[in-house]
Nucleic acid binder design. Structure first.
Lengths: 182, 182
DNA sequence: ACCTGAACACCGTTCAAGT
DNA sequence: ACCTGAACACCGTTCAAGT
């Protein structure tokens, strides 16, 4: 990539990360281009679809997902606590920006989505937690990882759209956790 | 209301019902106005916000909600079956149009929403089912009706946005039902 | 090869003029 | 009292012209 192109690419991603954080995932791309000091055409050249930009913005986020899963797995305590705490973390992970939970959860399992690698990272992290609990024999046998992603993602989506606080979300996560355990 | 105003009102609602069904809740209101044969100003006069139009479109839907709850309550069989079947019905009720589950579920508990009466009808129907099961002593004591609405609504929202079929939705509803029961 | 920015399309929303 | 439709604002997207 030419030096000026790389510079523009980086600027756009950096600005988008900030704008998405402040105004949510549906923020105006025109504004992003303006703030990045590029023409709208340049933004569209690098990111033909809005979701390609989301994907770039979430690049570093993948590490955080894996770290969080590691910490959740190291939890000392009951299986139920481990699961509920992981769900709380999961919701927080996908709720960084307004509109994030819906975007990530609806793309889950869709191989054509531009953010497919992000969904996979999320699903793998969730799968690791699920697998460890299954080894303990704590979970129902018929639990599929993607269903858990959708269940918890659904709660996060509702919480995001209704602007619920953590205190309102936890009891719902507990219901799902209890429903998943033997 | 003047005769011509009433006629326009009815036309707009009828057209909107059809358009929302075909293209989802985010369909263009300009199109609705054109198809109803009125100017855009007329539509905005009757329905200042999009959600006021939604509210009018869903007027008859309330009866269907109550009928469905009645039938669910008459179910012969286990409490779990009754609950799961009701959840399946609930999802179907709020999934008439694309975007419906998110709209109805996120407005749940918000007294300022233009569709507040529709949410209340839905919550009341759900509450009737919950109350009957609670009388049977089948449910956890700390279950709040609005939480159940959000849990099931969250699943419906994900299903709507990912275009999942009933076979993929049912297992998730079963998890929630199991998590809610004693 | 890449960028710019004018141009177009689409939609929501308002309001002056009309009946 | 109600309606019309032109007008404006905003945003996404494209593309001819430029470097």
């Amino acid at each position: 990539m030419r030096a000026d192109a790389q510079r523009n690419y980086d600027r756009i991603v950096e600005v988008a990360r900030q704008v998405f954080r402040e105004r949510g995932y549906d923020a105006s791309l025109d504004d992003v281009a303006k703030l990045a000091g590029v023409g709208p055409g340049t933004l569209y050249r690098h990111f033909p679809k809005r979701e390609n930009l989301l994907d770039a913005v979430m690049q570093s986020w993948v590490d955080k997902v894996n770290d969080t899963a590691d910490k959740a797995l190291a939890h000392e305590g009951s299986d139920r606590d481990l699961l509920v705490n992981w769900f709380v973390d999961y919701v927080e992970l996908i709720s960084q920006h307004k509109g994030g939970p819906a975007k990530l959860t609806s793309a889950m399992g869709n191989p054509d989505s531009p953010i497919v690698t992000k969904c996979q990272a999320l699903a793998r992290a969730n799968g690791r937690v699920i697998d460890q609990l299954r080894e303990d024999g704590a979970l129902r046998d018929d639990v599929e990882t993607i269903q858990v992603c959708r269940l918890v993602g659904g709660i996060a989506t509702v919480a995001d759209q209704s602007e619920l606080d953590a205190a309102a979300v936890r009891p719902m996560l507990e219901v799902v956790a209890d429903g998943l355990m033997k």
